[in-house]
Design a protein around this nucleic acid. Structure first.
Length: 414
DNA sequence: CACCGTCAAGTCGCA
DNA sequence: TGCGACTTGACGGTG
């Protein structure tokens, strides 16, 4: 199965909200948790509808969920919603995970830091427990800091792990990171503890354990750590952003390299770590199994104005490609989409695409909206406002008139 | 209204 | 020794 992490583009009402510690009053926190659970349910429903069966739940679900200073009985307060969402996850066969961030350092030298890491793991575990999810729904953790002595720091990780609750222990998985601990280190720790290992290909590219070994070598070696109640093997997959620091995730998963990467894998869950999130997940799912021509047509409907504003020729080419209903040209379609999205919108095509989109509202808009639209378009043609502001005017109309075809598309998010 | 600094968390590399 | 990078949206202050 293929999945994505934490948030989805082009899914209205699915965004996680948070606050800063200073403003984290009880009232505010309850309101945020309530909103975030509603957003999570929107995401789970979206995943089910779109055939996505692997998903990472954002740690922001309960802001300051592990902060001793802000402890709230959220698990009791929201038991019903958590259980209902968990039920959807279970009945759809979805596998979820959570991933405490870089600030959760179980092997810290400072015992206070280690204690807060333990509390943070408890928090994440409680979310999954409250949803009634089994131990195959993992908590994925990095090994932590080196403190000048990697071996001693690995040993400290293991000894801290031994003191964790059985519930957390049974959910934990460890991942190689891009600075300190390699896949070899993670496998060492696994050998001594039985903790399953999530292999991350980009972290290994940046922080390699052994330049002589391939991704497939490490995936095969890690597969041994996935036994029984841990469920299917899980890996993280991402591609390097060519313009950014080593280890930075790409804007999208390029489908060609992805297909080559995964062709030897079978029954491995692949979590994509990529800026365009659900978009890449759907692309990879559609290209690794035949989801039917209707699934490709639905995708085209979401992408088409983002393609049109960048390259009208590709827009026409994809329309032609999808005319034959007996075919399933997923790879060709996505490669054309990638080619178009790699370009910046051109002024003329952007005007054309925006006018297509305006067509959804021109008969419904009131006089003031029509006048504002004419002004915005004139200013964009003159070059005195950005494309972003022109499109945000369209998005406001789309939200107001509940134009779900546009709201669920990618024109406003790409 | 647009823009920018700050906040939260902990480690590490580099002056 | 101390600061910037890493991550990210919210928030408040400035222009």
């Amino acid at each position: 199965m293929i999945g994505y992490a934490c948030l989805a583009l082009g899914v209205p009402g699915s965004g996680m909200k948070t606050t800063i510690l200073k403003h984290a009053t009880q009232e505010r926190l309850y309101a945020l948790i309530s909103q975030n659970l509603a957003a999570l349910e929107v995401l789970i429903d979206y995943n089910i509808k779109n055939g996505i069966r692997l998903f990472r739940i954002s740690s922001d679900l309960v802001p300051f969920g592990s902060s001793a200073a802000k402890s709230l009985p959220w698990r009791d307060q929201f038991a019903e919603a958590l259980w209902r969402i968990g039920g959807k996850i279970r009945s759809s066969g979805m596998r979820v995970s959570m991933h405490p961030g870089q600030y959760t350092v179980l092997n810290a030298l400072d015992p206070v830091v280690a204690k807060s890491a333990e509390l943070d793991l408890d928090y994440h575990c409680q979310v999954l427990d409250a949803m009634g999810l089994g131990p195959e729904h993992k908590l994925i953790l990095h090994l932590g800091g080196a403190y000048g002595d990697r071996e001693a720091s690995k040993a400290r990780f293991i000894s801290r792990w031994r003191d964790l609750s059985p519930a957390v222990q049974s959910r934990l998985a460890i991942e190689n990171d891009d600075r300190v601990f390699t896949i070899r280190d993670a496998l060492d720790v696994s050998w001594k503890t039985g903790i399953p290992v999530v292999y991350d290909n980009l972290h290994n590219a940046v922080n390699p354990a052994d330049p002589g070994k391939t991704d497939l070598d490490w995936i095969r070696e890690s597969s041994i750590t996935w036994q029984g109640r841990n469920g299917r093997q899980k890996i993280h997959y991402s591609q390097q952003d060519p313009g950014k620091r080593p280890g930075a995730h790409s804007a999208t998963v390029r489908i060609g390299p992805f297909l080559r990467f995964q062709e030897a894998l079978e029954g491995t869950d692949i979590m994509l770590e990529v800026k365009d999130k659900n978009l890449s997940a759907i692309k990879c799912i559609n290209c690794t199994s035949n989801q039917g021509i209707a699934a490709l047509e639905a995708e085209w409907g979401r992408y088409k104005y983002a393609v049109l504003e960048r390259d009208p020729n590709i827009y026409q080419a994809i329309r032609q490609l999808l005319k034959d209903k007996a075919k399933y040209p997923a790879l060709e379609m996505y490669q054309l989409i990638e080619e178009a999205l790699a370009k910046e919108p051109t002024h003329g095509s952007a005007v054309n695409a925006a006018q297509h989109v305006w067509g959804y509202f021109k008969d419904r808009a009131d006089t003031a909206e029509k006048r504002r639209w004419e002004t915005a378009m004139r200013r964009y043609r003159e070059g005195s406002v950005t494309l972003l502001s022109l499109k945000s005017a369209l998005q406001k109309l789309s939200i107001k008139y509940k134009e779900n075809y546009l709201n669920g598309g990618y024109y406003f998010v790409l």
